[in-house]
Amino acid sequence: MDGLKLLPILLQMPCLKKLLLSGVGGVKDEVVSELAVVLGSTLEELHLADCRLLTNAAVVGVAACCLGLKVLDLDMLPLLSDMAISCLADGCRSLRVLSLKRAKLSDEAVAAFITASGSSLCEISLNSVQQAGDNTLVALAKHSRMSLEVLDMSWCRSVTDHGLGFVADSCPLLRELRLFGCTQVTRFFMDGHSNSSLEVIGFGRENITSPGHWSNSGL
């Protein structure tokens, strides 16, 4: 499939609410920007994973026009930077599900987005966002505490037991936490948090046992 050839067809669907273009070739910034202008008032769900030609310009277009967007998938887009998520914070304030797998974003930028627009977030994936750390976790604990249900921090080696514990204790609706590849996380977190309904997925034998009880007083 070719995004450029699909564009004229999609533009004839002004009531479209859900659009999946993940992995489709030819999806460039101009394609997404034009779709955003025409479909932005109705579009609620947009999947752009693995459309590797996209840059910050595409996200600027989405943020400016798709104000009612609830689900956004930006997985594996290597050309995005902090500017992209900053634009999302200005425009897409109703997001409930956001996926940013392998995005090259700073911990500070992700935390700033959550602080500005995280009050509706039910699910966020930061899988393999290498710089994502405790600033992001603290922002989630403070600004997404009454909405967050699913959090994927797999392969985020900068998160700590303390940061994860703060999120687990602060977000009563959090039911699933994915920690594949987080070998720095220990039993210190697992035995210390108070969220009895939380399922931690990906915590395995490689995680070193550490006795004691954590405190969030320093976060």
Rank of each mutant, 00 (worst) to 15 (best):
V150F: 04
L79D: 12
A112V: 00
L54D: 09
L148G: 07
R96M: 14
D90I: 14
E44D: 09
G165I: 03
L20K: 14
V200H: 05
V138E: 15
Q12V: 00
R175W: 05
F189N: 09
N56S: 06
N216A: 12
L177E: 00
M1R: 08
A64R: 15
L35R: 12
K142V: 07
Q184P: 04
V60W: 09
E206L: 01
V138K: 15
M190C: 11
S119C: 11
A112W: 08
A89G: 14
L174G: 09
R145V: 03
L77I: 03
D75N: 12
L46Q: 09
L54A: 03
L105V: 05
L105T: 03
K17L: 14
S22V: 01
F166R: 12
V38P: 03
A112I: 00
S33Y: 01
K104H: 15
R145M: 06
V37E: 14
S120K: 09
K70L: 05
K142E: 09
L137K: 07
V62T: 07
L137V: 09
H47V: 08
R93K: 11
G192V: 04
D191A: 14
A103V: 02
L174V: 02
G133A: 08
G181D: 00
V24N: 11
R205S: 12
R157D: 03
G192K: 02
S194Y: 02
S147F: 02
S119D: 08
A103C: 13
S86N: 11
S217V: 08
T136Y: 13
N56C: 04
C122T: 06
L10H: 01
G165P: 00
R187H: 11
A111W: 06
A49E: 14
E199I: 04
E176A: 15
S94E: 06
E45N: 12
S210D: 11
D50K: 07
L74E: 05
S197H: 13
G165Y: 10
F166D: 11
L148S: 08
F166E: 11
